[in-house]
């Protein structure tokens, strides 16, 4: 949120985060905090755009003017809660370890090469199927990392 689209004034200070802008909208800040934020936002198109979006969303939701998103999209989001990432990852590692073991055994025990290789393939497929949420996991970790980075960059608006 560092851009200053539409504004000729260069914004010198970093933007307040969304939670701070929500506090501003909710009137929860002290006069001094409000004035500091206004000083920044009055020269920052990105913050003004956030304020507009927040105000419009609150109004439209209250008026029932926002269209429903459909079950598929909602179910996908709800499904995140069903994903116990720790347990899933552990189970996934077990299948991976079994796959590696079967693959290794297929070479160390030549007599049962084909059997162990087939077992490695089956276990490997099981590992892949258990890892179906892998993209979600990667995105989650990336989101977490970005959130931590953003948090470090954030100015202390609330003092």
């Amino acid at each position: 949120m560092k851009e200053s689209i539409g504004s000729l004034h260069e914004v010198k200070t970093a933007c307040p985060d969304e939670a701070t802008l929500a506090e501003y909208a909710g009137g929860a800040m002290t006069q001094w905090q409000r004035e500091r934020l206004e000083e920044h936002a009055s020269a920052c198109a990105a913050c003004l755009e956030n304020i507009r979006a927040a105000q419009t969303a609150e109004r439209m939701l209250a008026e029932g003017a926002l269209a429903d998103t459909g079950e598929s999209l909602k179910n996908k989001a709800k499904g995140l809660a069903k994903m116990d990432t720790g347990k899933r990852r552990f189970r996934s590692y077990i299948w991976l370890a079994a796959t590696i073991a079967a693959f290794t055994l297929s070479f160390t025990v030549p007599k049962y090469f084909a059997q162990f290789l087939a077992a490695a393939v089956i276990l490997g497929l099981k590992w892949v199927s258990e890892s179906e949420g892998i993209r979600t996991l990667i995105v989650s970790m990336d989101a977490k990392r970005r959130h931590e980075e953003e948090h470090e960059e954030m100015p202390k608006w609330r003092r």
Partner: peptide, 28 residues
């Protein structure tokens, strides 16, 4: 989906201090 992942998996909701303004915060 990425927004909801950030809210659930990265605990982004902990940032929200003005709970009565959740819709506005989410829109931002």
């Amino acid at each position: 989906q990425d927004v909801f992942i950030a809210l659930w998996a990265s605990d982004r909701l902990k940032q929200l201090r003005e709970h009565g303004k959740a819709a506005g915060w989410l829109a931002m």
